[in-house]
């Protein structure tokens, strides 16, 4: 029985870890004077193609090319991004209005064709 509970705990923690790895995007919102501040933090290496590894070879460019945000499925902002944005990029934007319970979606695509998106429901 003791073994069983230990196993359960392990599997729980593992699954939580996997969930964290699944999405590269963190979203937080804040209501400010009737507007909504959307803050995003994306896990991404943002290599600009000019850095060298230990053997002296260039690390190929790998950076987010485009980022866009949807508010209730309507695209409200689109950004083109170069490799000269910092590693694990942070952005924040101010949305006019926005109600508690609205859905905000943040998506990105990088120069290798990888992409990710995440939904977030505006809280109080």
């Amino acid at each position: 029985m003791a073994n069983f509970t230990v196993r359960l705990k392990k599997s729980k923690s593992q699954s939580a870890g996997v969930e964290d790895k699944m999405s590269s995007i963190k979203i937080r919102t804040k209501r400010l004077d009737g507007n909504t501040q959307i803050r995003t933090l994306i896990t991404h290496p943002m290599e600009n193609g000019r850095n060298k590894d230990e053997q002296g070879n260039f690390i190929p460019a790998h950076h987010i090319q485009e980022l866009w945000i949807e508010h209730n499925k309507i695209k409200v902002i689109r950004c083109n991004i170069a490799g000269s944005i910092s590693k694990n990029p942070y952005f924040d934007f101010l949305l006019k209005g926005g109600e508690v319970g609205d859905i905000v979606t943040v998506s990105w695509i990088d120069n290798l064709g990888k992409s990710d998106s995440k939904k977030y429901i505006i809280k109080k």
């Binding site: 507007n35 943002m46 600009n48 508010h71 309507i74 695209k75 409200v76 902002i77 689109r78 950004c79 083109n80 490799g83 000269s84 944005i85 910092s86 990029p89 942070y90 952005f91 924040d92 934007f93 101010l94 949305l95 006019k96 209005g97």
Partner: peptide, 16 residues
């Protein structure tokens, strides 16, 4: 950044 009319002109980021 291409802003739609639904956004306030406020943007922040981190540069290299």
């Amino acid at each position: 950044f291409f802003l739609s009319p639904a956004m306030e002109p406020q943007v922040s980021a981190r540069l290299k």
